[in-house]
């Protein structure tokens, strides 16, 4: 989605070069004040001392990060041991987001290929069909998913009705439900970049490979997949990153035992039980993780283009 609109062609129009400061000012002002500055302040907050009723005391402290990574016993006087609770929550989030990403890839890749090989005039219609659900409120979609997957919901009733199962499947409040929810939330993000890549792909390469004795699935693996790899990487990131920090799917579908980063962070800012510096620190760690992934992929894509 963040595709390279900035790296336009060589013929760069400069009709409004004179006014560009004024044209950019509102965007810069809004985003610097409402996104960049807040992230900076969040970083500061993560090094402050917690106030017990929400908020912070303006006193420097490592406490939040220390609490995230180390356990010093109930009274803080024991030698530090690694604290696994939060690391495990992060790990679980990564795992859940990863599974959701793979699920999306497994469904999204064939879908994208199929759409990209329709007649040119049909393609926008298929793309549109795939994107509509994304624009429907995520909350409503997640609730709908929960409704569908309930123990006595339509899915189980249908499966029981046709006799595939004899007992209702317990899906809600399991890891699987969260994975399905995440998969469902971000599937269009997988389809779109892969679709764009396959649409640009020159199918005479496939014919050349078949002409050189490669069977159909070998053509897919050896020629098509490498050629559309940038699209696949982009799709995986677009699904993985929002899944990692998602809140609704784990909260509504996962129940209390399937906590993810989003819920952990949210909890720190709810009511009086919260710990703002800790929430800010967890957010910083999540943001760092995401930035590392983005940088890594940007470098990967850059290398691809350099070829």
């Amino acid at each position: 989605m963040a595709g390279g609109a900035a790296s336009g062609g060589s013929s760069q129009s400069d009709t409004y070069a004179g006014a560009r400061v004024w044209l950019l000012l509102p965007a810069w002002a809004t985003l610097l004040i409402l996104v960049v500055a807040p992230v900076g302040i969040m970083l500061v907050y993560s090094f402050l001392t917690k106030e017990f009723r929400g908020g912070v005391i303006w006193e420097f402290s490592w406490e939040a990060y220390d609490q995230f990574f180390f356990n010093r016993g109930l009274f803080g006087d024991e030698p530090p041991r690694i604290e696994w609770t939060y690391i495990l929550i992060f790990w679980r989030s990564i795992w859940q987001a990863g599974v959701a990403t793979l699920l999306s890839l497994a469904i999204g890749f064939p879908t994208a290929c199929f759409i990209a090989t329709r007649a040119p005039r049909q393609r926008p219609i298929w793309v549109f069909l795939v994107t509509i659900p994304y624009w429907v409120n995520l909350l409503i979609r997640t609730v709908s998913m929960k409704f569908l997957l309930r123990d006595n919901g339509p899915l189980n009733e249908a499966l029981l009705g046709i006799g595939v199962i004899s007992e209702p499947l317990h899906i809600v409040n399991t890891n699987l439900a969260v994975q399905l929810g995440l998969f469902y939330s971000y599937l269009p993000f997988m389809v779109l970049p892969i679709y764009a890549a396959v649409e640009r792909y020159n199918f005479s390469l496939s014919e050349a490979a078949a002409d050189l004795y490669a069977p159909r699935w070998t053509v897919l693996r050896r020629i098509l997949l490498p050629a559309v790899k940038p699209g696949i990487v982009a799709g995986c990131i677009l699904v993985f990153v929002p899944s990692l920090g998602s809140f609704l799917a784990p909260d509504l579908l996962g129940g209390a035992r399937n906590f993810m980063i989003g819920s952990l962070i949210e909890e720190q800012f709810k009511g009086n039980a919260g710990n703002w510096p800790f929430g800010a620190a967890a957010s910083m760690i999540l943001l760092t993780l995401v930035l590392i992934i983005l940088l890594f992929s940007a470098r990967q894509q850059g290398r691809q283009e350099a070829r």
Binding site: S204, L205, A210, D211, P215, R216, I223, A227
Partner: peptide
């Protein structure tokens, strides 16, 4: 199918595998 024919083609746009 094409991959079972002992016939090869030089394509007009070459179709060299870029990767």
């Amino acid at each position: 199918p094409p991959h079972k024919r002992p016939i090869n083609t030089v394509f007009q746009n070459y179709a060299l595998f870029p990767h």
